[in-house]
């Protein structure tokens, strides 16, 4: 559902907000995962998520509704993650070439592919990376992403299309290699 600050403002009153501890429990996975998928550093992601909730506590009086809280958390978590990465000039811990390669097709599909995809997402440029995370982790619409990241909707669409193309090319290239190796390994055992 597409929503902006204005619509949140009229949706509910501040009195109807859930208790703060409940908000943390409900949304900690969302905030932590945005940071984790972006930074690929669990301690840094947890620290960042805690800071986001601290900031939410400081801004609690300006929260208008439960939807507003979700929008606010996504927006602040995204911006903080981008700032954090820029500040540390963090690079993805594992480059495409360093990613471990499995030897069987089953593992490729069950575990490796997801891990590999998450890793290559983390190797994308900052804006593309955050757009992909908000689109596929949070299942946000383009308009919602554009509001959260202060970007034009057309820019978000372009970033998303480029990111998908890049990810698909890399994944196909790597999976092709994996399948070749798997077939070679199978042929070796048969011989």
């Amino acid at each position: 559902m597409l929503a902006s600050f204005d619509t949140y403002a009229t949706a509910e009153t501040a009195e109807s907000l859930p208790p703060f501890a409940e908000v943390i429990e409900t949304h900690k996975g969302m905030v932590y995962s945005i940071a984790w998928h972006f930074l690929r550093d669990r301690p840094a992601a947890e620290e960042l998520a805690q800071e986001v909730f601290l900031q939410l506590h400081r801004s609690w009086s300006s929260m208008k509704s439960a939807d507003h809280i979700v929008f606010w958390l996504r927006k602040v978590a995204s911006h903080r993650a981008i700032d954090h990465a820029r500040r540390l000039k963090r690079r993805p811990e594992t480059s495409l070439e360093e990613a471990a390669e499995p030897t069987t097709l089953e593992r490729v599909h069950d575990t490796f592919l997801s891990t590999y995809l998450a890793r290559i997402v983390a190797s994308l440029p900052e804006k593309q990376r955050m757009v992909v995370i908000l689109r596929y982790q949070e299942e946000m619409e383009v308009e919602e992403i554009s509001k959260a990241l202060n970007l034009k909707a057309a820019t978000v669409k372009t970033l998303l299309a480029r990111a998908i193309d890049l990810l698909r090319t890399k994944a196909e290239r790597r999976l092709g290699r994996v399948e070749d190796r798997s077939q070679a390994a199978r042929a070796g055992t048969e011989l």
Partner: peptide, 9 residues
């Protein structure tokens, strides 16, 4: 696949 890879933790 991407959605599965980026599931919440």
């Amino acid at each position: 696949e991407l959605r599965r890879a980026l599931k919440r933790e």
